[in-house]
Nucleic acid binder design. Structure first.
Lengths: 355, 355
DNA sequence: GTGAAAGCGCTAACAC
DNA sequence: GTGTTAGCGCTTTCAC
């Protein structure tokens, strides 16, 4: 019927014909331009709606020389098979989706493994996206640096690494570590085990907070009380099982993710060790799951919605020529059943948690 | 420097100029056309790579009259504030991302609440996506029907509803319900409580399986042993807490999601009820989390990777003019610690689960 | 084997 | 206030 390639989709020219005006008028009317007669505009808008017309975004982008899409890149570890790695990332992803949508951007979701990290430049180069949000930094620091210095608008969720030239958003990991550790000290705990792989920048910072808190309370780090547990669930479980098989000389755990804390809790329970009575446990991330499990998990909260906004702002800011920045968001402790303050009497505590 | 709008991005004309050929030749070379001289092609490809050139996808799409993007729609319940509702959906989302990527499609992620469900037509109408995958069906059955009958290529994850005119992919919920219930019967349980809101099509089917299994074993449904627990985490917790406050007259639970099962486990533990000794629990979805918690969760597995492939195939198939179909994927039971077969001796069981 | 030219659907000067 | 025109970056006939 029609000579266009795109099947028989309604387009502006159709509306123009029916309305008896030119395409430009249709374009203007639909864009809400005030230059077009009120009545004409109304008529055109009505018509478009009744025809369920949506302007071709590709053509718009082409003409305007820009897209309204932001690419979000999720890491895909080549090691594990997990479809989407960390529940925390997912929560962040959800917030990002909402933030982008509510501000009129489309979200292009991509999963890449480390080997493909350089390919993501094509997302912008091809005009598919105007910028990139990268969730998770261990997609090679150097690759991100390279991308950024090549002018790709990019904002990364991760730890503030010294010498980063890319826009980075993260929470105050050091403070988080401090809060968690101080709380465990306040619970009267003396042997606080740190669970996390300090080769990861964010974990390293949490560890610093851990150390700070110990020192501030007249203690120091005991190397026997640190274990490089990985984030990935299965590997974490193995590592924790191995750890607990060899030592039980601790009265508190500070885990670098809620998932890790939950796994630890499960393994402790299987050994008959009670949480929080025998061992107090603090997690990290404050997943919504943290308040669903038994015992509910004391955790360090990261402000997800703010993080999503900051990442979006970051991409747009860099795209406008802004210089790389670090945005550090506050963290806070959320107390739940997996820890027990020393000062609280047993009855007071149980009354409090009954709620 | 250049007169184009899209900043100063490299484009074909630049490559053509440098290589001393025409744009058409560059286009052909990059498309891998055999019509172009081998050497010329090689030279151009090299050049393009060294310039980190990516062809403008918008222009390609416009010219070719089609896009290589598939929109994935995730429900956003207006009721709750959860960024992304169900962990199961997330897992499916991850698989979809991988399936799409590996087959050369981009994924546009959108979250919509029920009120906006009609807007998703614009994703296709605007040429942003060639089709839509909808995760979760309670985005109004009728709206999906309307979209489909209007020719929007759409494939939905959900339950096979009678009279659906849209392409639907789901797992065998009835079988799943049967397997779970039969297993609990095999565990010697007599009072098996069904947890789930049967107003949801998928849950209704699982309930049918539950009933089938009871009847096949000479029993029948006891209305006192069903509770309409919702999927959403917080509401589920409230409902379960309420339930357990009023009754403890059951020796097994069949929960319609792993999240629900985990929450139930947590609440039972808080009441000193042991799983699996006092109460056996079966979940649904087989989240990766199911093997991380204590006790690890017996669950009904849905084949996620297959589901993702089927959804993608479905969209493409419908787009090619294929008629709506129902694809029902098999489900299977994964036994873990939260249930205990009657036949297994205590030592045999513990040896088995030690693994 | 390569180039010239047309045109995908839209927007934005520029005319009137 | 509306129409005419040019052109976004690419692909693809159609010539040669």
């Amino acid at each position: 019927m029609s000579k266009n390639l795109t099947s028989n989709k309604t387009q502006m020219v159709d509306i123009a014909r029916i309305a008896g005006v030119s395409v430009s008028t249709v374009s203007r009317a639909l864009a809400g331009s005030t230059l077009v007669n009120d009545e004409t505009r109304k008529r055109i808008v009505e018509l478009a709606k009744s025809l369920r017309f949506s302007a071709n975004v590709g053509a718009q982008n082409l003409r305007r020389g820009q897209s309204q899409t932001i690419a979000v890149v999720l890491p895909k570890s080549t090691a594990d098979q997990q479809p989407v790695s960390d529940p925390f990332f997912i929560a962040l992803l959800g917030e990002l989706a909402d933030a982008l949508t509510s501000r009129g951007y489309d979200m292009l979701l991509t999963r890449v493994d480390e080997a493909q990290i350089d390919d993501i430049e094509g997302l912008v180069g091809s005009g598919r996206a105007l910028g990139i949000v990268v969730i998770g930094q261990w997609l090679h620091h150097y690759a991100l640096t390279a991308l950024s210095s090549r002018g790709i608008p990019i904002a990364v969720w991760g730890a503030a690494l010294p010498g980063s030239n890319y826009f980075i958003v993260g929470s105050d990991n050091r403070l988080g570590g401090q809060l968690a550790t101080q709380h465990l000290i306040d619970c009267g705990r003396k042997k606080i085990m740190f669970l996390g792989d300090t080769r990861l920048p964010e974990v390293a910072l949490r560890f610093e907070g851990y150390r700070d808190a110990l020192i501030a309370n007249g203690g120091m780090v005991n190397p026997g009380l640190t274990a490089a547990i990985p984030f990935e669930a299965k590997a974490a479980r193995r590592a924790l099982a191995d750890l607990f098989a060899h030592t039980s000389d601790f009265d508190a755990l500070f885990a670098c993710s809620d998932l890790m804390a939950m796994t630890a809790n499960a393994l402790l329970a299987a050994r008959g060790i009670r949480v929080p009575q025998d061992v107090c446990v603090v997690g990290y991330d404050d997943l919504s799951l943290a308040s669903q499990v038994h015992p509910t998990l004391t955790s360090v909260r990261q402000p997800l919605a703010d993080a999503a906004q900051a990442l979006l702002d970051g991409v747009l800011y860099v795209r406008e020529g802004g210089a790389a920045k670090m945005v550090i968001l506050p963290t806070g402790l959320v107390e739940r059943e997996s820890t027990l303050r020393r000062s609280a009497t047993k009855s007071a505590k149980s009354a409090q948690t009954k709620k």
